[in-house]
Simulated scan of single mutants.
Amino acid sequence: MIFDLLGPSLEDLFNFCSRKFSLKTVLMLADQLIDRLSYIHSKDVIHRDVKPHNFLMGVGKLGNQIYVTDLGLSTESRDVQAEEVDDLADAQHGDFDDPSDVPVEDVDIPARKPNLIGTAYYASIKGHLGVVQHFCDDLESLGYMLIYFIRGSLPWKGLKATSKNEVAEMVLERKRTISTRELCQELPQEFASYFDYLRSLPPNAKPDYSFLRKSFRDLFTREGFEYDNVYDWTILKYLIANR
């Protein structure tokens, strides 16, 4: 397989920027990321592992363009419509030979039927439960990612347990019990509205991507930002080069 040479991942750039992005950078990222997922979903594909490591920036003239990578866990929507999980508990429990304290960010959900293996830190609630995922699940993971970028962490960071499975269960419980208002506390209303919209949709419904992009774009305009593709790392690299 031949793949374009790409630049750093969003996680790399997040670390480069001292693990905090400005609201302007997050909103410009959100605009592109929703568009990328919209395109993938238009092909009846669900990514199922949306996280900062799987989005890379381009290089050269395409340095401001985001690329989606690692489709190894993706599946076609039409192939999963009829899938059901016989025992949800099976999707939440797995055996590990060497239990130890495991950072939440490194935890993968144990594979069961259907074959859902996502990173616990960003996985949707359905991803945790082992039930069939749909388009909204990718967007739910994206929402967690945006909050992570603007805050530097998520409410379930730092949980300690004796196994990967136990950590995943603790993260799931936090995601199921936290309200959108608490999750998006002190952030602009548009972030809570993003999650409220996704949760209001009926099962298997296709989201209105234009509506979600417009919501964030309206916030961008209201804040007086200029859509100039000048991200936080752009400014930081310039400052470092001109010391």
Rank of each mutant, 00 (worst) to 15 (best):
G118H: 02
T119W: 12
T119A: 12
Y122R: 05
A123K: 10
S124R: 05
S124M: 05
S124N: 07
K126G: 02
G127T: 05
H128K: 01
L129S: 01
V131L: 11
V132N: 09
V132E: 10
V132S: 15
V132M: 09
Q133C: 06
H134Y: 13
H134T: 15
H134K: 11
F135H: 10
F135N: 02
C136N: 11
C136F: 05
D137F: 08
D138A: 06
D138K: 10
D138V: 04
L139V: 03
E140Q: 09
S141A: 12
S141H: 07
G143D: 06
G143P: 06
L146V: 01
L146I: 01
L146A: 02
L146M: 15
Y148I: 02
Y148R: 03
I150R: 01
I150Y: 08
R151Q: 02
R151I: 01
G152D: 03
S153Q: 07
S153T: 12
S153C: 13
S153W: 00
P155M: 11
P155W: 10
W156C: 09
K157R: 15
G158K: 07
G158F: 12
G158W: 14
G158I: 11
L159K: 09
A161H: 05
A161M: 03
S163I: 08
S163N: 02
S163D: 00
S163G: 10
K164M: 11
N165T: 15
E166V: 08
A168F: 07
M170G: 08
V171H: 08
L172G: 00
L172Y: 11
R174E: 11
R176Q: 13
R176K: 15
R176H: 02
T177M: 13
T177Y: 08
T177L: 14
I178M: 14
S179C: 03
S179L: 05
T180R: 09
T180M: 00
T180V: 11
E182M: 14
L183S: 12
L183T: 06
C184T: 05
C184D: 02
C184M: 11
E186Y: 12
P188Q: 03
P188V: 10
P188A: 14
P188K: 10
Q189P: 00
Q189W: 15
E190P: 04
E190M: 11
F191I: 05
F191R: 07
A192R: 14
A192Y: 03
S193W: 09
Y194F: 15
Y194H: 09
F195H: 13
F195R: 02
F195Y: 12
F195E: 11
L198A: 04
L198C: 03
L198E: 01
R199W: 12
R199K: 14
S200C: 04
L201E: 05
P203Y: 07
D208I: 10
D208T: 07
Y209P: 00
S210N: 12
S210L: 08
L212E: 00
L212G: 06
R213S: 08
R213P: 01
K214A: 13
S215I: 00
S215G: 07
R217Y: 13
L219I: 05
L219Y: 09
F220V: 00
F220Y: 12
F220D: 09
T221F: 06
T221L: 15
E223S: 14
G224D: 03
F225Y: 15
F225S: 01
F225L: 04
F225H: 01
E226M: 08
Y227K: 06
Y227Q: 06
